[in-house]
Design a protein around this nucleic acid. Structure first.
Length: 198
DNA sequence: CATGGGATTGACT
DNA sequence: GTCAATCCCATGC
């Protein structure tokens, strides 16, 4: 099961889905990029929003898989997750970085003059570059405005390295961050295994 | 009803 | 390296 266009792709444990998304193409409108960094979150560990149970905020996260969970971070940024596992289990993959592929001019105008390599090199950056906002919370990833597709034919497969998750204070020791060591688009700081591989 | 804390980023020293 | 911006929502009184 490696085709994200099939619903069963998302109805799996989050630790399987998170690495499988590396190399796939994320699209919104005429903008899109190759997913090069993800993180897994699960209700059993305290860094996950769903750890506290069902609230208005966590309804999407705990609901059926295969939809987008978009929330506001630090009052400023929108962060994109894909919901995984079964209905009733709070688990999702945070999309942390892309390598820009399509609609680069549009991304540049939305991102205000940063270097091309920084257009999507962070979870808040990529939502801005793709024009993803909070209204897309709950959108299906099949037949909706957001699409995730398998790697294009001939694309080099991701070199997957893992590390601790970024920017959290709880359960940061879990190695649930997945990066493509072959990409320069990964957000800082790079995991130790990735620095060693370069 | 008041308060506090982020799954971040960009500007500045 | 430090730090402020900014707002939703969970929590506590």
């Amino acid at each position: 099961m490696s085709d994200p266009r099939r619903a069963a792709f998302y109805a799996r444990p989050v630790l399987e889905v998170a690495p499988d998304l590396l190399g796939c193409t994320l699209r919104h409108g005429r903008t899109g990029g190759r997913i090069v960094e993800t993180e897994a979150y699960h209700e059993d560990e305290p860094a996950c929003h769903a750890h506290i149970g069902l609230t208005p905020r966590t309804r999407t996260l705990i609901g059926p898989p295969g939809v987008a969970y978009v929330y506001r971070s630090y009052g400023i940024h929108a962060l994109l997750n894909v919901v995984t596992d079964h209905d009733g289990v709070g688990a999702a993959v945070l999309i942390r970085a892309l390598e820009p592929l399509e609609g680069i001019e549009t991304m540049r105008s939305r991102r205000g003059g940063v270097r091309d390599r920084d257009l999507c090199s962070g979870p808040g950056k990529l939502t801005q570059a793709l024009g993803l906002w909070l209204e897309l919370n709950g959108s299906p990833l099949e037949g909706g405005p957001i699409a995730i597709e398998p790697p294009p034919p001939g694309a080099s497969p991701p070199v997957i390295v893992t590390g601790g998750r970024i920017g959290i204070t709880k359960a940061a020791e879990l190695p649930w961050r997945y990066c493509d060591a072959g990409s320069t688009g990964v957000s800082r700081p790079w995991p130790a295994a990735m620095r060693a591989a370069r």
